[in-house]
Amino acid sequence: MENKELQQLLENQKYSFKPYFSDRVMAGLEAMPGKLENSFEKALDFLFPKLSFGSMAVVALLLAGTYISTGNLDLDSITGVYSLENQWYETDYFDLF
C-alpha cells in the first residue's frame, strides 16, 4: 500500500455525534453547579462596576447640593433633620394646648 492511498483512506475517517449533541451538552451544563445561564451572580459581576460608578456620582452630587443649600455637611444636614428643626422652632405648637 502506498502512503498516498493510506492518506486518502484516513482523510475519510471523519465522524459526528448523534443528533442534538449540542442540546445534550447544554443540558449537562445546566445540570452542573455554577451553570452557564445568565445567573444572578454573573449579571452582578457585569453590572457592579457600572452601577457603582453611577451611584458614586449621584451621591457626590447630592452632597454638593446639601453643602450649597445648608453650608455644612453634618449628619443633620445630610439626613434633612436640619430643615425640620427650623420649621419646628418657627411654629408655635404650644398654642394648641
Binding site: Q13, K14, Y15, S16, F17, F21, S22, V25, M26, L29, L36, E37, N38, S39, K42, A43, F46
Partner: peptide, 25 residues
Amino acid sequence: KNGDSAAFKHIVGKYESKVATVIRN
C-alpha cells in the same frame, strides 16, 4: 464570559465534528 449561553452552544456546534473524529478514532 458575559453569560451568553447561545454563544457557547455555537462553539459546541462549530467544533463537535472535530471532537467526534478524535474520540471515535
